[in-house]
Computed example of a mutant assay.
Amino acid sequence: MPLDVDAEAFEALVVEELDALPDEMVDGLENVVFVCEDAPEDGSDILGEYQGVDLTRRDRYGFGELPDRIVLFRLPLLAYCRDLDELHDEVHVTLVHEIAHYFGIDDDELHRLGWG
């Protein structure tokens, strides 16, 4: 049976895990918003998604740019986890994974590093 965590409680959990990340991981983030949504529009079961142009591919980036987005999907994460401890762990891993994409680290490298 999937966990039952409403949108407000899920967002609070994400903020808690984001605050727990090491400063050196989040200090370099610029013009990025973190968003919680129920599920991906395409119906897939991904847990999170980085939407933007990673730092390694940016040419000119400056004033007036819309922020990049790191999205965590509540329903797939709840379906993936058995309990709240596992949900905390998976939100943490998903945040690290998507932040890594912002810095230009691809899925192959994340798998090699154990974050895939």
Rank of each mutant, 00 (worst) to 15 (best):
L55Q: 02
G116W: 14
E109F: 15
D4V: 15
V14M: 03
L72C: 02
D27K: 11
V33K: 10
G52P: 01
L55Y: 03
L3T: 13
R57F: 10
A20S: 10
E17L: 02
D108G: 07
R74L: 00
D38K: 02
E17N: 06
L18A: 03
F34G: 00
D38I: 06
I70S: 01
F73R: 00
E90C: 09
A79G: 15
L29V: 07
D83G: 04
F103M: 02
L84M: 08
E37V: 12
D4S: 14
H92P: 06
D45M: 10
F10G: 06
G28W: 10
D106S: 09
I46D: 06
D19I: 04
D27Y: 05
Y80T: 15
F10N: 03
V96M: 12
D42W: 08
E41W: 02
D59R: 13
H111S: 12
D68L: 06
D107H: 15
F10M: 09
G28L: 02
G62N: 05
A12R: 08
T56K: 10
V96C: 10
R60H: 13
V53P: 00
T94R: 00
L77Y: 15
V96T: 13
G114P: 01
R112K: 14
H101S: 07
V71W: 08
V53K: 05
N31P: 01
R58F: 08
D83I: 02
D68N: 09
E41K: 06
M1A: 11
H97Q: 00
A79L: 12
L110F: 12
Y80G: 04
